[in-house]
Nucleic acid binder design. Structure first.
Lengths: 142, 142
DNA sequence: GCTTGTCTCTATAGTAACTATAGGATGCAG
DNA sequence: CTGCATCCTATAGTTACTATAGAGACAAGC
């Protein structure tokens, strides 16, 4: 099948498929005489794996590891588990950081709606250095 | 004060301060005869505002808007509220997406630990096209 | 006056994970 | 055979910075 068909079957955009190829996540397929890529059902499976991993937020480096492990004869479940567990921790940490942001933000936005104060609570929150007390919850972002 | 001092007082790295200047978030300061930047206490306040907004996850475009509104004579609280409320929704949405990821991920990782199945649950989760049923919860990332 | 060390300057490139665009070539239906 | 969808490569843009190179500036000590 050609790249458009592969894209349709997997839900991965054509440009992204080519991008995955440059990143070594998808093996370079055979080409027709005119240079067009020709894929097999095995590529569909691999690309679906890629997509699912992407949807679960694995970074491409992690996906690469997972693919390597899944490809190896007799999957090393421990190694796979380690990659996934590490990513789960990362997701947890991102959630915690976002929730900390959310609390501060929600408080300011709500105060704004309540209209009980003279000065804009959002601007105050951002301007006030005392707010830095919240800083502990809002550790380095990313 | 020079840029290093400003950096120390605000916790924003020197390179980041210069970056904010190129992005129009911090006005270009006066320069000494030799070309070094000279800042005032007003710059400290503005940079702290910038840092707080950054910690709350506002995109630079949002920070730009907020700064513009905060600078205007007589803060337009409604406009500020709109920017903040929009960002709050964005944060909420990111949290929801991450939590959906987390559920799927947690299930696979736990199954892995329980060791009740023959094949690696993480690899299964990623390979199984039936998993696409979860797709609704895991909408387009980013 | 000279050296040493820290700070500052500009400009460029790299990060993640794609997306967008330009400018052509190919494949297929009518 | 013409038109349109699809395909090709290569390059640049996105976000919010960080890293690096190579050079100039400032303060202290000798």
């Amino acid at each position: 099948m050609r790249i458009g068909e592969l894209s349709g079957q997997t839900g991965v955009k054509v440009v992204t498929i080519r991008f995955y190829e440059t990143q070594g996540l998808l093996p370079p397929p055979r080409r027709t005489a005119s240079g067009q890529r020709e894929y097999t059902p095995a590529d569909v499976a691999r690309l679906r794996f890629l997509r699912h991993a992407g949807e679960l937020g694995f970074p491409l480096s992690g996906v690469r590891e997972l693919l390597g492990l899944a490809d190896a004869p007799g999957t090393d479940c421990d190694a796979v588990h380690a990659v996934a567990a590490r990513h789960l921790e990362e997701v947890d940490s991102r959630i915690r950081r976002l929730q900390a942001m959310r609390r501060v933000l929600k408080r300011a936005v709500s105060a704004c709606e309540a209209r009980v104060v003279a000065r804009c609570p959002v601007v105050e929150t951002l301007s006030d250095h005392a707010y830095c007390g919240e800083e502990h919850a809002l550790t380095s972002r990313r």
